[in-house]
Nucleic acid binder design. Structure first.
Lengths: 170, 170
DNA sequence: TATTGTTATACTCTATAACTATA
DNA sequence: TATAGTTATAGAGTATAACAATA
């Protein structure tokens, strides 16, 4: 498998701008979320729950891209803060339904618009209306391409020519 | 400050596609980096050091968006793996110059093209050449807007109408 | 047997602040 | 006094695997 000169590869040259745009955005937004006493992971869970009747842990784990084990800890902390509650699922006694409490719902409804309003000028300064439409479309295609499970499995099955290099500690 | 209906705000509707595109990309790339025995933070440091004569800890911390304290731990682990080395800076005996070892340089030179080649089809599947050029330009403008320190300080100085909600544990 | 969620372990990152050795 | 890097601490996310209850 011949490896091209990646510096001249127009597709790969998109990698850095994508990372940089996201990280610049993330850094600003994260600072704001932290000032609310939440972590990004906790905010994610609340945002996913908002507008639903409740989700199971399995559904939440899938949406927030974490494992069940990690999620348990995040939910514990949110429950301690009184922002979510765990309940039964009728029909499956193994499952747990996670819902926002009234306090959690109010928090999101107050916080998200403020957060959105906080972020808006950054986007408005960067792009005009029609450019936003273009950007959205292109970003969605990038997302869909990386979320395509067929491509992932076929590409992912060619590992490690570099495995001659040992990065382990011992 | 009147808060618009954010669901109809075309600027804010860009927020979700940006996050989703990045996360989809990140998830795929991260899985690949992990298979090399590195964490994202460690890979970042190596990528920053590549092609330099060495950077100080302060420079590295700035580039990788972490604090000095966090960086020390990351560097310790990379040093254990023999991928970086710490040396003196002539002229300032407080400072430390961090460099890739030959092993680290070889790792990057082997790993990055493979990593890039691994990622390329995902982008190529999503966009054609001219769309890539457009996307790059728009993403750079988003990045620059969020990195603009003037805007950040003026915007950031309007905090917490939502601070009536207490998210603390005790 | 398979699935749901929790628990346990071990590691990494994070923010913050105190500390040292220089400057 | 200020800066460069380390150390210390406490919290939070991560991957993995074992586990109990249920399906």
């Amino acid at each position: 498998m011949a490896i091209r000169d990646y510096k001249d590869d127009s597709f790969l040259s998109l990698l850095r701008p994508l990372v940089e745009a996201y990280l610049a955005f993330y850094r600003v937004g994260n600072r704001h979320i932290q000032s609310l006493g939440l972590t990004p992971g906790q905010f994610d869970v609340i945002a996913e729950l908002e507008g639903t009747e409740g989700l199971t842990c399995a559904e939440l784990a899938e949406h927030t891209l974490t494992t069940k084990g990690t999620l348990t800890g995040v939910l514990d902390r949110l429950e301690l803060k009184g922002l979510i509650q765990r309940g039964d699922v009728s029909g499956d006694r193994r499952a747990t339904k996670v819902q926002l409490t009234p306090k959690g719902a109010i928090l999101f409804q107050q916080v998200f618009p403020v957060h959105a309003e906080y972020m808006r000028p950054f986007f408005a300064q960067a792009l005009n209306e029609s450019e936003v439409q273009v950007a959205k479309q292109l970003l969605r295609r990038i997302r869909d391409s990386f979320n395509d499970p067929i491509r992932q499995s076929s590409i992912g099955s060619q590992p490690t020519e570099y495995s001659s290099i040992d990065t382990s500690t011992t």
